[in-house]
């Protein structure tokens, strides 16, 4: 929806109807995300898990668009879905996981993990609720333009950017060194 308005110079504040539509859209996406994520961590099939992850990543990209971060959304699709997910699938293949379902994917004492994440969620949920109880996004907020993002990366955030470049290089070399057969 917002992407349709991309080319307008100034965007009018959203009307109530538009907000309602966007909200509905968001809740649907959120539902999809959560369900897919839950399936991903519980499924017995490694390949299915990867596909659920794909759904989650795509849904998160949609959330970015709702938040007006189109470039991040595009990168999410390109890098995550296009590269990382494929890499993970390669990993699945190279480790010769079964394509079908497996019984032995989960740790026996799952309740500990469950407990920890429930406690974690309780803590986070409480503090979020306390902190931002009814804070609203400005209805007039503007999508962040890719040009601005680029300029900001190469001016204000040039040092972190370079650091990330070096990190990528190091990871590249590191991955080669670690996985090399010798």
């Amino acid at each position: 929806m917002m992407s349709l308005l991309l080319f307008a110079q100034e965007i009018e504040p959203l009307t109530n109807t538009e907000q309602w539509v966007i909200n509905t859209f968001f809740y649907v996406i959120a539902l999809v995300t959560v369900v897919a994520a839950l399936k991903m961590v519980t499924t017995n099939n490694v390949v299915h898990a990867a596909l659920y992850l794909l759904i989650v990543l795509a849904a998160v990209a949609a959330v970015y668009i709702i938040l007006g971060a189109e470039f991040a959304a595009a990168t999410q699709v390109l890098v995550y879905i296009g590269a990382i997910l494929v890499l993970l699938l390669f990993g699945v293949m190279l480790t010769r996981a079964k394509i079908g379902s497996e019984d032995d994917l989960n740790y026996d004492q799952r309740w500990i993990g469950g407990l920890v994440s429930v406690v974690l969620f309780a803590v986070m949920g409480y503090s979020l609720w306390e902190g931002f109880e009814d804070t609203k996004l400005d209805p007039a907020f503007q999508p962040q333009r890719t040009g601005d993002v680029a300029e900001s990366i190469f001016t204000q955030y040039i040092v972190p950017f370079e650091a990330v470049s070096v990190l990528l290089l190091a990871a590249l070399i590191g991955a080669v060194v670690v996985a090399r057969r010798d």
């Binding site: 959560v34 994520a37 991903m40 994440s117 429930v118 974690l120």
Partner: peptide
């Protein structure tokens, strides 16, 4: 937060 906790799980 929900995604994070599912990830931790």
């Amino acid at each position: 937060a929900v995604l994070f906790c599912i990830g931790v799980y």
